[in-house]
Design a protein around this nucleic acid. Structure first.
Lengths: 338, 338
DNA sequence: CTGTTAGCGCTTTCAC
DNA sequence: GTGAAAGCGCTAACAG
């Protein structure tokens, strides 16, 4: 019989006599036949791979193992169980000239992909991914590319609400521990903060916005420095380092005590536990919920059950009643590898 | 110019004028050209993917997240940093008819692979992988296929030494908590145990070998049952559950106390911490060391710097002086998902 | 140094 | 219901 007949059997199409089909299947089993995935993708089918890439090296934005695993586990359930390959292309310390973090797509290895991390503000690849036309999901928004398929949290809104909350409590000089300088979520934080100040007619002071690295020592140092200025009466920790101890230590070095002579507002990925119980409020970022739902939608898109692009931007919630129990060991979304 | 010239440039081969090369590179950059990985593999090159598969579903042998991550991290360093894709094909609850867990190879997606888990005794796929001819590494041996490229620990030797140690201390009825029934490491344990008994002229009692699941409740129950027999004076815990509490609880329910009226010998993946400090000895299984070295060799093989197959079978070490500190939270190699 | 040609394994189109 | 032929993008062999 001919190649076409075999091809039909392979792809579960009809137009083949039952007897022939059975015979072919028997032979395939006997010879141990498997279709060549490369040839298939060459012909236009595309490999059944879902790819995971990072827009920047793990050294720059050190996504924690916990998160990588969480992503891994979700994709396993959504794609692995349906027989798709899950393909990681995580290139620590830029093997690639920068920008082609989606080479798995260009090379037609992926038929969909997850960009797992914040986008640099000058990113141009995400737009190319969008135009490429396959299902994809970025875990970050990008200014100037609102059509991006994304699942994340509205950091600008979070920063705005946090700042306004403190202004309403009478604060005028509000410091901010900001992460992700040069990245979209960092820019969103800044914008939200400035917008709230402007609305209240407060002149912003750039020196109060402090970029921090993802480690406890740097945190402590920054808090110390900022709080030496006695006019600073409030501090927003939107570093998402979730490190209450570093906040306390930094404040103590500056002779201050959170909840007494300095009001702290913390950001956290968790709703039920406090970064710092003595904080005046905690902003909960439902990032995991957003990403989880994003993955569900991505799977549906990938499997042809729905259409993209995805646009999930969860609004953070300001908890005025901070949970009483403190996060036991900080299980961070980002961990420095020092 | 022709396709071949372009191909040469792509593959960093010489025989192209410098000026032409530069021109081609410029154009490639401009158009955003990327070679089609499927076509390449079709032509015989093979995709630059290292695959990771599990011989059985995660539901049957629940490899812990910690281990998956450890593997992931190692492969990232060894392969990811050199630009290779790391591709997982982990098929929970048998999407495939069983046996084609290496479909990534048959489909020519992988140019090498890691089989990350114990092999079932009736496995036939591993031999086919071996004959396939690409670099691969199995984290288990297989009876009747000694040529397999593997990195693991000699469980038979471990069971033999454990049993002999207890016999020499005067025990005659030695119970055994055994994991991996139906799998190679389970068979090795049994063999080692029986060999030691036979050498000592002790008639084995099958009921003393007890298969346990990877969870604390089942452990406790099994220990309880076994120790109700007052003639049992020694217990080998080679379940590698590393759960001292379950051992203690089971013993207590049977009215026994480890270290007093029952001698326990524990197996552990760690050298410096005790599963049960009151054990009379601990067998250290340098599994991580073996696998780590195996990965190094696999990478060399994959990159053409050395030849396979790999054969790393580390000998366990019997520590008569059990470490004093107990493993804090059991961080298990295998965790049931209940 | 450069161009031509063939063929990898698959699927689709079209003819039988 | 089945077969023949073309072509996907790439590279090796062979001419020019």
């Amino acid at each position: 019989m001919s190649a076409k007949t075999v091809s039909k059997v392979l792809n579960h199409k009809d137009g083949v006599a039952d007897e022939t089909r059975a015979r072919i299947l028997a032979i395939m089993d006997e010879v141990g036949y498997h279709p060549h995935i490369g040839a298939r993708s060459l012909r236009g089918g595309g490999a059944a791979c879902i790819g995971v890439t990072l827009p920047v090296s793990l050294e720059v934005v050190p996504i924690s193992e916990e998160v990588l695993l969480w992503i891994f586990g979700r994709l396993l359930r959504l794609f692995g169980s349906r027989g798709e390959y899950i393909c990681f292309d995580i290139n620590p310390s830029g093997h690639s000239p920068n920008g082609d973090y989606a080479r798995g797509l260009w090379q037609q290895l992926y038929r969909g992909c997850v960009v797992a991390g914040p986008l640099p503000l000058d990113d141009t690849t995400a737009r190319r991914i969008h135009e490429w036309g396959v299902p994809y999901l970025v875990l970050s928004r990008l200014d100037g590319c609102p059509e991006l398929s994304c699942a994340t949290v509205d950091f600008e809104q979070g920063a705005y609400e946090s700042t306004r909350f403190l202004i309403e409590r009478g604060h005028r000089r509000i410091a901010m521990l900001k992460a992700f300088s040069g990245f979209q979520p960092g820019a969103e934080r800044r914008r939200g903060y400035l917008r709230a100040l402007e609305e209240a007619g407060i002149e912003p002071d750039e020196s109060l916005i402090r970029a921090v690295a993802f480690d406890a020592q740097d945190m402590t140092r920054c808090v110390h420095r900022l709080l030496l200025d006695r006019d600073v009466t409030a501090l927003i920790d939107c570093s998402v380092t979730e490190d209450g101890a570093a906040l306390r230590n930094g404040a103590r070095r500056a002779g201050r005590t959170p909840g007494k002579d300095i009001e702290v507002l913390t950001w956290s990925y968790r709703e039920d536990e406090a970064v710092l119980p003595e904080a005046c409020a905690q902003l909960w970022l439902p990032q995991f919920d957003a990403v989880g739902e994003g993955f569900d939608e991505l799977a549906a898109w990938f499997h042809g059950e729905s259409e993209g692009p995805i646009h999930i931007v969860y609004r953070p919630t300001l908890l005025e009643k901070v949970p009483e129990t403190e996060i036991a060991r900080p299980r961070r979304l980002f961990t420095s590898q020092t």
